[in-house]
């Protein structure tokens, strides 16, 4: 039972009616809908960032996790750029993604993460096949006027710059491998690419998987240390 006397001594109006009852960040939400107005995909297949923030605020975590909503988002950040309260909506989405059972992650995202963990790239491409593709494309460039004797330096000790590759360039977009190679050649850059763990993209960002993400970033640190490279070219 409420002890009026004691209550009077210990609780102020502010205690009873806090000006900002902040328990977690989404509690700051004013429900103004600016996020949804700013989001370019609001209304498509039921997507609505304000609704997502409200779900989190109300504790409907499981409903959100079981829905396709976290995966419909492109994480473009326009919602939180517009939010007057600075709520980190993209992080809410990514956190929800990370709480989904890994076998329920739609499409290729988690499969790519698993392959990268196992093989060092999202394609699961063996090292000898990787080297063959790279040397094949490099050989063609070396026959192009202006790029005579071009070679791709694998695992060069003490190089100035570490270059990694987006898996799609090694897969279906081989013709896009040469652009940076041409620039490096003309700039006389002292660069190198790793012959293993060469993957430049980090799908742990998309799948909400911090453990995997850390492994992939750690591999880049490992290349830099092992090969004593001076500078990293950010993969993306």
């Amino acid at each position: 039972m409420l002890n009026f006397q004691e209550n009077k001594l210990t609780q102020t109006i502010k205690d009873k009616a806090p000006l900002r009852p902040i328990e977690s960040i989404p509690d700051l939400c004013l429900s103004c809908g600016t996020c949804s107005a700013g989001c370019p995909i609001t209304g498509i297949s039921g997507f609505d960032p304000r609704k997502i923030v409200r779900m989190v605020l109300e504790g409907s975590d499981q409903e959100l996790i079981d829905s396709p909503l976290p995966w419909l988002c492109t994480m473009c950040g326009k919602c939180e750029h517009a939010c007057p309260m600075g709520i980190n909506i993209v992080n809410i989405i990514r956190t929800a993604r990370g709480m989904v059972d890994r076998d329920k992650v739609p499409g290729m995202i988690h499969k790519g993460v698993e392959l990268d963990l196992e093989t060092g790239n999202n394609l699961g491409l063996p090292a000898e096949d990787f080297k063959f593709i790279i040397e094949d494309v490099a050989g063609e460039l070396a026959e192009t006027p202006g790029f005579e004797d071009f070679q791709v330096p694998f695992d060069k000790q003490g190089a100035n710059l570490l270059h990694t590759l987006h898996n799609k360039l090694v897969n279906t977009q081989n013709e896009d491998l040469v652009h940076w190679w041409k620039i490096f050649y003309k700039a006389k850059e002292d660069w190198t690419i790793p012959s293993v763990n060469w993957e430049g993209v980090n799908w742990g960002l998309f799948s909400g998987d911090d453990d995997a993400m850390k492994v992939f970033v750690g591999r880049i640190v490992d290349h830099m240390e092992r090969l004593e490279i001076k500078n990293l070219m950010y993969p993306e």
Partner: peptide
């Protein structure tokens, strides 16, 4: 963005 290229939600 956000990995949506890797999901089955192509129409979206």
């Amino acid at each position: 963005g956000g990995g949506t290229l890797l999901t089955p939600y192509k129409n979206e």
